[in-house]
């Protein structure tokens, strides 16, 4: 099995009712969890932006992007491997909490 990593998938769409379920459906069908989701106006008039954080393989992440772009109302979709520092940061916080609890002071 391919190694799983965090990916950030951003998608720019027309402002169309029901697109959220379309976007979510593409993940559901492939049994990929959405770890985080944000939807907001992109800054370009009439264009919405979806940002999805997910944990999957690179092949699946790329397939999601291509299938998002296949949707008529999707303008563009991009995929980024999650920033390594982001995970370091998370671990640092977790370690910090652990340390605090262990020392209990």
């Amino acid at each position: 099995m391919e190694k799983e990593k965090h990916y950030i998938i951003t998608t720019y769409t027309e402002n169309q009712v029901g697109l959220l379920s379309t976007v979510a459906g593409l993940f559901t069908r492939r049994s990929i969890n959405i770890d985080a989701l944000r939807v907001f106006p992109s800054g370009i008039p009439g264009v919405h932006k979806f940002v999805v954080k997910t944990t999957t393989s690179e092949a699946k992440a790329r397939a999601i992007v291509l299938n998002l772009e296949k949707k008529v109302d999707v303008i563009k979709s991009f995929c980024y491997v999650d920033n390594e520092d982001f995970n370091k940061e998370l671990k640092e916080v977790a370690d910090y909490i652990q340390e605090r609890e262990n020392n209990n002071n």
Partner: peptide, 14 residues
């Protein structure tokens, strides 16, 4: 109908 046909159409519109 839109909810039901979303995954099995190229496009659906109300």
């Amino acid at each position: 109908l839109i909810g039901m046909t979303n995954p099995i159409t190229k496009s659906s519109y109300q």
